[in-house]
Design a binder for these strands. Structure first.
Length: 108
DNA sequence: ACGTTGACCTATA
DNA sequence: GTATAGGCCAACG
């Protein structure tokens, strides 16, 4: 995880609190050479990473918490998001476009 | 080594 | 507007 994986973790940690982004956005930020699925796999191994990776701030393009079941307590994802001020209803982020954080637009 | 699955996205009907 | 198909790369069995 010296290249893509570490990059994914880094970008994920750069996500400001109360903001959310999508796998595709991160994939495009790192380069279209890879697919968004690999980002999901990277975050899948992120739970063992020593620096805490706010994977709960990463959702799919539809704003749906698809990976909430991958959390140790599946409800932790929604709990953390609501704790940061993000309203989640039915495993879906409310005003996703407003809370959306694009690394390409923000970071460049 | 091959086949299948997966925290997805874009395109077409 | 929703529904279906294809594609991408990596890990698991």
């Amino acid at each position: 995880m010296d290249d893509f994986y570490g990059r994914v973790y880094e970008v994920t940690r750069l996500i400001p609190p109360g903001r959310v982004t999508s796998y595709g956005a991160i994939a495009r930020y790192l380069g279209t050479g890879l697919s968004a699925r690999v980002v999901g796999w990277a975050l899948n191994l992120a739970h063992d990473q020593e620096p805490f990776v706010p994977a709960h701030r990463v959702v799919n393009r539809n704003g749906l918490l698809t990976g909430k079941v991958h959390f140790h307590p599946p409800s932790a994802m929604q709990e953390l998001l609501e704790n940061e001020g993000v309203t989640v209803v039915d495993d879906q982020v409310v005003d996703f476009d407003r809370h959306f954080w694009d690394p390409i637009k923000e970071l460049g």
